[in-house]
């Protein structure tokens, strides 16, 4: 027993937590919530939860990873609550939304409409400045998504939550979740094509 305790890494003094992890956790939360006071709130909740749970810190992972794990749950909780507050109509509206990217009739039914055909972006992901520029537009385009689309998209793409878990957490049918992600991706790619591609081509 005594050996076990000796081998365990001790968690640092709580009074140093803000100093050690505060900024990092704040940036992590900001990136997902895009709201300063919300981000501060979840970081506070994280520290309070960590105080209660600090005995469970086994030192298997780094302290930072442990804090991020708690913060992650807090962020998911936030999105879960906000999705509960939404009426089911909102979700249904998004799902029922008419798709106007494709031809609805004729021999070419189901094909991209002329003005909506995706272009070859020829993006070079090894080019840092190109990537940075793309990122700026991507952030703006995410901000323009309907709130629900943006939230689900962030949880899936940034937080990397698998769809099974996501449909449980957000109480969404898997088929509806799939439609929401599809809509979000399609709207983003079209927003990027309208804005980033244009800005990019102008500069060339």
């Amino acid at each position: 027993m005594a050996d076990k305790t000796l081998n365990q890494k001790q968690i640092s003094d709580p009074e140093k937590w803000v100093e050690l992890h505060g900024d990092y956790l704040f940036r992590y939360a900001m990136m997902r919530l895009n709201n300063k006071s919300l981000a501060e709130d979840v970081v506070q909740e994280t520290f309070l939860a960590a105080l209660k749970a600090r005995k469970n810190f086994a030192g298997k992972s780094s302290e930072r990873t442990w804090f991020v794990g708690i913060l992650k749950r807090k962020i998911i909780d936030h999105f879960r609550k906000s999705s509960r507050e939404d009426s089911h109509d909102d979700i249904q509206k998004i799902i029922d939304m008419k798709d106007d990217d494709f031809l609805l009739s004729g021999a070419r039914q189901g094909q991209w409409k002329t003005g909506r055909r995706p272009k070859d972006w020829m993006i070079d992901e090894n080019d840092q400045s190109e990537k940075n520029e793309f990122w700026e537009f991507l952030k703006r385009c995410i901000a323009e998504l309907p709130r629900r689309l943006a939230e689900v998209f962030i949880l899936r793409e940034m937080e990397e939550i698998e769809t099974d878990e996501l449909s449980n957490v957000l109480e969404l049918k898997p088929t509806n979740l799939r439609v929401i992600l599809y809509r979000a991706r399609k709207q983003l790619r079209s927003c990027l094509e309208d804005n980033w591609i244009r800005a990019h081509e102008d500069r060339k």
Partner: peptide, 17 residues
């Protein structure tokens, strides 16, 4: 192009964030 685009969005979003 569509397929490449949604992959690029994911990959840049994940690495930049």
């Amino acid at each position: 192009s569509f397929e490449k685009q949604i992959h690029a969005i994911r990959s840049i979003l994940r690495s930049k964030s």
